[in-house]
């Protein structure tokens, strides 16, 4: 591991050190430090435009940091050949685009790219990895189908299969549940958990970092939750430790009640104020709760949801 002792805590292959990210002249992420725990599912949450996807892109070297660095095994990503990174970090962008009329098996097989060369375009190892990835995502039966003609849920599973075929220790998934109905969302997230779970022989599972929109899903599936707001990390830790009404109010500006998930016991966030037929007049006092939800500026509004706790 890294010779520098002040680097990540033990067991973090992927870390970010005072990471500053910007698009053109707009700084999106400020001085962010993050250590991704190995073999666990880390979920980044936060309101729209808080920099969570941007952070994930930087972790996957899709975005070059303006300041600071992302380190893989203690070495800056910028100093590692991209093909070598691709053997350790697999990633699935938010809206990947498949070549027109490509078949499912062809697309999944392209995940093997970093393991191949001009002279060795296919190996038994490739075949094993592709077969394994396809059976894990349950797309083996679709192998000969064209990706164009699949449903949204099937297509997302195929893309995840491609990322799995890459056979990397780390997986970065950018909102993998977008565009999916709830059953398919659960299916994808169950798969993510399964990937991170240790194998029977005790070897640890894969490390997954993902961005999710749904706070409840994040709390249910994450080992480690990272809550971001305005380009900074507000809280990070196990969901049961950090998801509180105060945090939800601070990060999302939403008055909420936290109850245990009846199935898993993980924190479940329920919006705290019932819907009222508020008049559109902005000055109406009865609308204060709902306006706090929509306006991040009033996030530190005087009545955070704790008072409403049963």
């Amino acid at each position: 591991m890294s010779p520098t002792t002040d680097a990540a805590q033990p067991g973090s292959r992927l870390t970010a050190r005072s990471l500053t990210l910007a698009y053109e002249d707009r700084t999106v992420v400020h001085d962010l430090d993050l250590a991704v725990p190995d073999g666990q599912v880390t979920v980044i949450v936060g309101p729209n435009a808080c920099g969570k996807s941007t952070t994930l892109r930087a972790l996957g070297r899709l975005l070059r940091p303006r300041g600071g660095a992302v380190l893989l095994d203690g070495t800056e990503l910028a100093r590692i050949p991209t093909k070598q990174i691709a053997r350790s970090i697999g990633l699935l962008p938010q809206t990947p685009v498949a070549p027109e009329a490509i078949t499912v098996s062809d697309l999944v097989a392209r995940g093997r790219q970093p393991h191949q060369s001009w002279w060795q375009q296919w190996s038994d190892e490739d075949e094993r990895a592709v077969a394994d990835a396809m059976s894990r995502t349950d797309v083996t039966a679709l192998a000969d189908r064209s990706v164009d003609e699949l449903s949204g849920g099937q297509r997302q599973r195929v893309w995840i299969a491609m990322a799995l075929a890459q056979d990397t220790d780390l997986l970065l998934l950018d909102e993998p549940t977008t565009y999916l109905d709830i059953a398919h969302q659960v299916e994808v997230l169950d798969l993510v958990r399964q990937l991170a779970s240790p194998a029977e022989d005790g070897t640890r599972g894969r490390t997954v970092v993902t961005v999710l929109h749904d706070l409840n899903q994040a709390a249910r599936y994450a080992d480690r939750l990272v809550a971001m707001k305005e380009g900074r990390i507000v809280a990070e830790g196990a969901p049961g430790d950090i998801v509180t009404a105060e945090l939800v109010a601070e990060v999302f500006g939403l008055e909420a009640v936290i109850v245990p998930d009846p199935v898993t016991g993980s924190p479940l966030v329920v919006p705290g104020a019932p819907w009222t037929p508020a008049s559109p007049a902005p000055a109406s006092p009865s609308a204060s709760a709902s306006s706090a939800a929509s306006d991040p500026a009033s996030a530190s509004a005087p009545t955070p949801g704790k008072a409403l706790r049963p």
Partner: peptide, 22 residues
């Protein structure tokens, strides 16, 4: 190659998973 072979259900024997048509 320790990742998949051990812990997961390996593809059905005889099913060839190569890029279709290649």
């Amino acid at each position: 190659g320790t990742s998949g072979t051990s812990g997961s259900p390996v593809a059905v024997q005889g099913v060839r998973v190569r890029p279709a048509g290649y």
